[in-house]
Design a binder for these strands. Sequence first.
DNA 1: GCCGTTACTAAACCGTCGGTCAGAAATTGG
DNA 2: CCAATTTCTGACCGACGGTTTAGTAACGGC
Lengths: 254, 254
Amino acid sequence: MSRPADPKAHSALVAAARAEFVKKGLRGARIEDITAACGLSKGAFYLHFASKEALFDEVVQALASAMRALHSARTVGLEEVGAERGRLTARDVELRTPRYRRYLALETEFDQQALQMMWEHRDTLDVLIRGCAGTAFEGLVWTFLEEEVARARAEFQAMQRSGAGRGDVEAELFAELAVGAYFLVGKRLSRLAERPDLEAWASTLQRLIHGGALASRGAPGLAHARRGAPTRCGRPVGGRTAAPRRPAKRRRTP
Amino acid sequence: MSRPADPKAHSALVAAARAEFVKKGLRGARIEDITAACGLSKGAFYLHFASKEALFDEVVQALASAMRALHSARTVGLEEVGAERGRLTARDVELRTPRYRRYLALETEFDQQALQMMWEHRDTLDVLIRGCAGTAFEGLVWTFLEEEVARARAEFQAMQRSGAGRGDVEAELFAELAVGAYFLVGKRLSRLAERPDLEAWASTLQRLIHGGALASRGAPGLAHARRGAPTRCGRPVGGRTAAPRRPAKRRRTP
DNA sequence: GCCGTTACTAAACCGTCGGTCAGAAATTGG
DNA sequence: CCAATTTCTGACCGACGGTTTAGTAACGGC
């Protein structure tokens, strides 16, 4: 007995809410707009979620667990290769030994997975970054990043100890830059209409971060790193009209 | 005749508003909180500003003109040195010639100025980045960045043509990374209580961006780039309590 | 068909906040 | 001290939007 709920209602609400959150931010999104987008009434919203924040929390939890999964996969992956093939040394880096290449491939793979994850959750990420000021979710994205920075710093410090990482750079700053680079690219994803070549992005970023922007003096591995033409950067999503300036009304100050 | 306005009222309101904007975002900041912070009543606000947005606009214009000034200073500065000492070549980079060092110093100087500017306007930047979703100022910060990216891309492409920049990297992606790095650092400034050693940050960033994170094979100029111990990263501003999760109330979904 | 249950609707409710305005307070010139 | 003038106050208005709730209708079981 009893009337069954529209099986699509819940997911439709989530989808509409995500779109609305991206457009107006968590605070600015209106329940009525969300429900109207799925042909429901405002009241129906509260049959499925306790509040706007509860819905957003659900979405954020999905992102958080995806991040945790990736984070620990990376840690154990690195440990496994470490146990299996030994730590990276300065010599490995200098001669681009198979061990160096193994580490490089591993990192690339995880970076690609990270980008893929960011692509799937790009709307939520965007809201966490720039759409939840003054809410309970404020700063949550920084705690996420902080964990990644800590991991990257530890890895780089290990490389520095073994001579593989340059010693004249503070590990913390390096980690911020590296994590930040991916973060930025993730941020940019939210402005793209269709999925760019994330795999190429990952390897380009890695080349830049490892080798720098200056032409290297006949470094080996440069030709091997190249994969066809440099990659284009994707089309921005349509809309977003021109520069918004001066919402000005009249002024009364003499 | 007539009663003169409190001469400090205007600037006090601006200061209080900036603080409130950072705390709650443009939308979330309440006029009454702003005026209360300077011991004024809500009505007094409208003697000085037409609206909350008008006040914010005033603050943003100040930032915008500071950015424009820096932007054009950089362009003319680069042109001057170009006319005076000639363009950078692959050889300059390889041998770290005086010309290379001149360019490097110039860039460092402007980067430091940029960081300094960002430090002074860190609160406004922060609001533009993460506190104005769904307002008229939405996306303004990206148009600012877009200009910088365009400049960086053009500069890097020139370096690629002359062989000074590595050719296997898309100039656009490089430019995004480079501008993004400063942007991120600027973002981080808003979480610091006191001014860090921005000069050291600028040169570390430059070393990373130019030379990469990997230990270089006895590259010249490495020792000269080092300046004492690697720099610490500053103390975060106090407050900001632990992870905000589950604003949850009760749920009604069966 | 009828009944019980539950999804859903429509409208009311109510707190919040931007903006207004009548009057009180302050200052200056006389 | 008075008058003129402007600043400043704080109660008020109205819109907006999240949440609640009384009522409606769809569905399953009999």
